[in-house]
């Protein structure tokens, strides 16, 4: 056991390097999902059925498929490089493909958050604003959004935490993040069974140390922003 922990310490720097990739993937995917989710959320609220219904169908399908499956589809079916006219060929590394794959289900869920938050504002407010001659756009930006922002923040952070906890799945497809690096390290160090508990245990602690403070902060926000009935 002591031997195994010693081995773990030798490899910790490399595992932490891998963990940086988990962080990078989670940040980028969340940024994509936030922007895209906002627009998809608007489409879910569209007055036009031709926009609303197909969007809802696609959104629900994505929300209903496992992340692992989305990950497989993206890693094996997306091209490895994209030709951008005028810029030449851009190479898409695996971790970036995984990031795009992760951003997809999160986008679908952020869209739901946006839709739910806007729908939760009493319709009386929209009506009142309309009677004061606000345009539909003004109602959205000046009346609805400022109130929704606070309601959206806690679930948005919840989704960030779920996303960050999902990133080690990329190891299954060969991305060298924390889990992948830990597994390679165990193999390179002789693959002894006594490595398992310390190595996987270390990964659990590592993620916990990062996510738990976020979860605590989210809970505080939830309490602070709770709408009092």
């Amino acid at each position: 056991m002591l031997d195994a922990i010693e081995t773990l310490f030798v490899w910790i720097p490399l595992i932490l390097q891998g963990f940086l990739l988990n962080l990078a993937m989670s940040f980028i995917a969340m940024a994509i999902a936030t922007v895209a989710g906002f627009f998809v959320g608007m489409m879910l609220l569209s007055r036009r059925a031709a926009v609303r219904l197909p969007t809802r169908f696609v959104n629900t399908s994505i929300r209903n498929s496992p992340w692992l499956v989305v990950l497989f589809i993206f890693l094996l079916a997306l091209p490895f490089e994209v030709k951008i006219p005028g810029f030449g060929v851009a190479f898409i590394p695996d971790w970036l493909k995984a990031t795009i794959a992760f951003s997809l289900p999160v986008t679908a869920n952020v869209a739901e958050i946006v839709r739910g938050a806007i729908r939760s504002v009493p319709t009386g407010q929209t009506e009142a604003a309309e009677s004061l001659a606000f345009t539909r756009r003004q109602v959205f930006w000046k009346i609805l959004l400022p109130q929704c922002y606070k309601r959206m923040l806690p679930p948005w952070m919840n989704w960030y935490a779920l996303l960050a906890l999902g990133t080690p799945m990329a190891a299954i497809l060969g991305v060298q993040e924390a889990l992948g690096t830990a597994q390679e390290a165990m193999e390179a160090a002789g693959g002894k069974p006594e490595f398992l508990v310390p190595f996987y245990g270390f990964l659990l602690l590592l993620f916990f140390a990062y996510i738990y403070p976020i979860a605590l902060y989210t809970q505080r926000l939830e309490r602070r922003y709770a709408v009092k009935d």
Partner: peptide
């Protein structure tokens, strides 16, 4: 087949993806 997969991926992602070289 890979073209089929791409179409499928494009449908899923809702964005047009480029065809591999």
């Amino acid at each position: 087949k890979s073209a089929g997969a791409l179409v499928c991926a494009a449908l899923l992602s809702g964005v047009a993806s480029s065809v591999p070289q």
